[in-house]
Each structure stands twice: as C-alpha cells, then as structure tokens.
Simulated assay, not measured.
Amino acid sequence: MHSLLASIRIAAATMLICVAGYATAVWAVAQAIAPDTANGSLIIGPDGTIVGSRQVAQAFTRPEYFWPRPSAVDYDGAGAGGSNWSPTSSDLAERGREMAKRHGATPDNPLPADLAAASGAGLDPHISEAGALYQVARVAKARGLDQARIEGLIRRAAFSPGGFLTRDRIVNVLELNLALDRL
C-alpha cells in the first residue's frame, strides 16, 4: 500500500511539473517575447471587434477585394492541411484550370503560380506581390479607383519575409483588403 501511495504522489508531481509547469513556462516566455503572435496576431476593427488574424487566410470572393491562394481546407483554421494531390493529379489540374478561369488568365497573361496552388497547410494568409499586382485591374474596376493608387498600396504593404536574404516579396491579403477599405 505504501508503494502505491508513493507511486501516485510521484505521478501527480510529474504531471504537475511536466504538464502544468511546462505549459505555463512556455506561455509566459511567449507572452514576454512575442505577445501579439502568442495571442493569435488578431486584427481588431475600428469598432473593437476581431476582424481576423494575420496568420490565417480568409476567403474573399467579391471582385472588390484581393483573393487569397486557394485552400484545400476551405480556410478552416481548425483543420489545417493540404490536399495530398500529386502533381499528376487530374483534380489538381482541374483546380488550376478553374483558378485560371476565375482570375481571367490567358496565355498572354498567365496566372502567378501562388494564385492557382494552395499552400501546404491551406491557410497561408499571404500572396506574392506579383499575385496581388495581377489582381489590380479587377479590384480597381470594382471599386472605381485608379490602378496606380492600388499598385502603390500593394508596394507599401509588400515585404520580404527573409529580410535581406530574399528578393521575393509577399503581401498579407487581409491587411491589404482592410487598407483598401480605408481608402
């Protein structure tokens, strides 16, 4: 009986230290180092409501907004994942054709790859700067704005995720659309 009670005390202490203690320590470090990221990188609207997250894509389908990459999980943040389609999949090719048609791509004006292909998790909130610039004509027409004004907005919003290590620039679709709404 004495061994059983000792074993229960050791198991309880181990759970307290390894589960509660570790989780609390990780949470505290995250709050100290990067509280915005640790709390979901939420974007708060002017009325105080949560509009979205900088880390999770949202489905935008109206012509006056920039559209994100396609999502294999229908932009459901609770279930990130890819389609697992191989590059030779007819379903993947069909989705690519549908995306090209949706964006009005032609042989003379091909669709940037990131607008035709989902990211690995299906929730990437960014598109390439080229992908955003590709959509300018549609957005400008739908909003009745000058294309140069929207292009300037994209160039100001674009950044290099690798800093000076990469020339590729990306744009957060939600933040870009919110900036459009503020124009």
Rank of each mutant, 00 (worst) to 15 (best):
D91T: 12
S90K: 14
F60W: 08
A105D: 14
A38C: 05
G48V: 09
P107K: 15
M1I: 04
A6M: 10
S119K: 02
R95G: 03
A132N: 03
I154Q: 00
L165A: 14
N177W: 02
A12C: 11
R9Y: 13
R169T: 12
D114V: 06
A117C: 00
Y65G: 00
A38K: 14
D91M: 09
M15C: 14
G120W: 04
A140W: 10
A34R: 13
Q135V: 09
M99V: 11
M99P: 07
S53V: 06
S128Q: 06
V26W: 10
N177Y: 04
R156K: 14
G122H: 00
G79F: 14
A116H: 09
G40A: 08
G77N: 01
A142Y: 09
F60V: 03
F66M: 09
A130V: 11
N172C: 10
N172E: 09
R149I: 03
R54C: 00
I17W: 13
L42H: 06
A11H: 08
D36G: 12
L16M: 10
D74S: 10
L123W: 01
G104N: 12
V29E: 05
N39K: 12
I50D: 04
N172L: 09
A32K: 13
L5F: 08
K141G: 04
A121L: 08
A11Q: 06
M1Q: 06
G40Q: 10
I44T: 14
P125C: 01
I10Q: 12
G48C: 07
A118K: 02
V56G: 02
D108L: 10
G131P: 07
P87T: 04
G144P: 05
